[in-house]
Write a protein that binds this DNA or RNA. Structure first.
Length: 200
DNA sequence: TAAAAGGAACCGC
DNA sequence: GCGGTTCCTTTTA
């Protein structure tokens, strides 16, 4: 039978948590996701080990903290500030000029959700394609190229040195029931899919 | 063996 | 209470 593909119908008709998330007092009014993501950058820097896109996560072992140590532009320290959203780094990292209005919708004062974080990485393929990248942007499917790297970035972002992919993926799975992320119909390792409107 | 899945307890905001 | 973390067990590729 197969889950007659797609999003939407995995949601019980009527209740899409996503909607209340965006429309309700979740603090995220309707708006384009791109805009949404642009003004609050939550990324750690790929650091200098950004390297040759793909298989180069090899030097990930000892440079642990390294990643946030050498982060001149998107220094993680910034991210830890509740007010990081207004810090200059959002423009540094994204090159977006801040729409002051958009700041209003805020993402819970300094709280960045994992899915937002991943979206931001995805939106910067130049820096993060060795970590995570779109498989099919329209569809919302993305692949984690380096579970290690992604977990590390996330751990740094949240200041959790013990973060690993096992834990990160557990958080990712929590999104299944919230209708934010799901595994694509055709299951592939390390491939997930943003459900609308999160894939926009 | 790594990834996936999900239960459960816990924590910080 | 929510979102995320941590730990755990079981299953799957």
């Amino acid at each position: 039978m197969a889950n007659t593909n797609n999003q939407t119908n995995n949601m019980a008709a009527g209740e899409n948590p996503a909607h209340q998330f965006f429309n309700g007092n979740g603090g995220y009014p309707n708006m384009s996701m791109s805009g949404f993501f642009q003004q609050g950058t939550v990324l750690p820097s790929p650091s200098n080990s950004d390297t040759s896109s793909n298989g180069s996560s090899q030097d990930m072992n000892d440079d642990d903290m390294d990643i946030h140590m050498n982060t001149p532009n998107c220094g993680l320290s910034n991210f830890f500030h509740p007010g990081y959203m207004n810090s200059p780094l959002d423009s540094m990292c994204n090159g977006s000029e801040g729409d002051d209005d958009d700041r209003a919708y805020t993402r819970h004062q300094g709280t960045v959700h994992l899915w937002q974080f991943i979206r931001e990485l995805l939106d910067q393929p130049k820096q993060y394609s060795n970590c995570v990248r779109w498989v099919d942007r329209d569809e919302g499917t993305f692949k984690i190229e380096s579970s290690l790297l992604l977990a590390r970035y996330w751990g740094q972002r949240k200041n959790r040195s013990q973060m690993n992919y096992d834990k990160l993926s557990r958080s990712l799975r929590q999104y299944y029931k919230k209708g934010i992320i799901q595994k694509p119909e055709k299951k592939q390792r390390l491939v997930y899919k943003f459900l609308p409107p999160y894939n926009m």
